[in-house]
Amino acid sequence: MKLIKGEIISNEKMGDNLYKMTIFSPYVIKNAVPGQFINIKCSNDNSVDPLLRRPFSIHDVEYDFKVFSILYILRGKGTYYLSKLNPADVIDFVGPLGNGINIDKIENNNFLLIGGGIGIAPLYFFAKVLSSANKNVFFAAGFKDNSFLLFEKMLERLKINYEIYSENGMHGSKGMITDFIKEKVDDFKNYDIYCCGPVEMYKTLQNIFYLRNMRAKALFEEIMACGIGVCKGCVMKFKDDQDGYFYKTVCKDGPLFDLMEVILE
């Protein structure tokens, strides 16, 4: 991890309030693994508004061009600042950060990736890596509406199997992606499962997998301050050995955790 000034190659609107920013950084390309993130200063040099850096997962990497991208939804001051930046502008970020997915340790050949909303962002990077390693990947993605229509094109290009659901039925099948998982879960019994999405999705998945004694890994997000494990601000709760609990930081111990070990409240 390093503090980096990276040049923006493109910053495009992908859908309603959805943007993709591509950044040149040989260092990130060389070092990042899926699930890791960068912590961006979303204000001008001496401005303190917004004050903290904002974490964004690494969404895609293009090794040939030494660029990576992040996907973000216009939500507050930080993302508004990002949305106004142009190609050739420079952003100040720290990364790659966090405990991501160690590809070298993966033995299974079959992977189910479950993404909810903007949670598809880091899973796409993983899917791309798996696909280039000739693994069998099934990507299940759920959205509120059709904001992520262009994302489907990216999945098509990876030549992997996928299923898309949207709550209002404007993109893919109508319903929740967890309905699809519940119905088809037995087809994925021998798959390694990775998910990224909102807490409600995780609660539903925990129930589905618990009943079948299945395991899954999940990428989490939290409001962060330092991004490097120092401040203990971004924690998730875990059971300990004696019916008690303890906290782990999302930024350093995570963002990848065993979904079945996290206590969701």
């Binding site: 303190v48 004050l51 903290l52 203990k232 709760k237 409240e265």
Partner: peptide, 17 residues
């Protein structure tokens, strides 16, 4: 163990923890 989350909240030019 520390306090239950959320533990952070940004305010104008400030951080509540």
């Amino acid at each position: 163990a520390g306090n239950k989350p959320p533990r952070l909240c940004e305010t104008p030019a400030g951080l509540l923890n």
